[in-house]
Amino acid sequence: MSRIGWIRLAVLAALVALLETLVRTGIIPYKTMLPPSEMLTALVRLLAAGTATRDIVQTLTCVGAALVSSVVAGFGLGVAIHRFPRVRRALEPFFATYYAVPFFIFYPVLIAIFDLSLLPIILMGFAFAVIAMCIATINGLDRVPRVLGKVARMHRMREFETALRMKLPAAAPHLFTGLKLCVAYSFIGVIASEFILAPSGLGHAIAYAYNDFDNRTMYALMLFVMIVVVTLNMLLHGWEQRLLKRWHGR
């Protein structure tokens, strides 16, 4: 690991240690915050007891469904819109506004239409993520150098081959940005929806534990969500670095 990486690790460890001492010495009251070590033991116990397994499986299923559908649809939409400059120019102001409006407010409408099932939750995750992928795809295709198209023609590549071996690697950095945003937004969309109104799922379980003054479960589940999201991001980052190295030789 690089020097900066070590410093970062040390800073994080110091922050955790600080929190631990602040709670243990009672400067932060116990009923507000658990010491990080107890959060971890609570999480291990919770996972071993299996009481949260159903909620975890449900949330991860919803996030997975939202993620896959938004990446596929966003990419397809981006490619399609990129082909028609006129459509694209008409849609641009809507894209620029999309993430500025608090459209969680329409979650209740979805519940009213589809009832309190998993579908509105997945749809919220999908809706939150899909436009990010679409915008990233358009940006990526914009950055494909013209010369690559000419090279492809010189090599008499078919259209499919050009797309796969020329355009995809050239657009990859932006596609990865889109993918990472999709991961973050699917999680946010799904968990926030579960939090506001849902019969089950991690977001609901956290809200339920809060209402029940069950801090141990609450902090354990929060820790779980954080670990999953950060691990997923790190895996994606590693995969991105490896692929970019292979494609761009850097």
Binding site: I188, F195, L202, M218
Partner: peptide, 10 residues
């Protein structure tokens, strides 16, 4: 990238 809603109870 964290879903900050989870932190709302805190």
């Amino acid at each position: 990238s964290l879903p900050k809603v989870t932190l709302y109870p805190v």
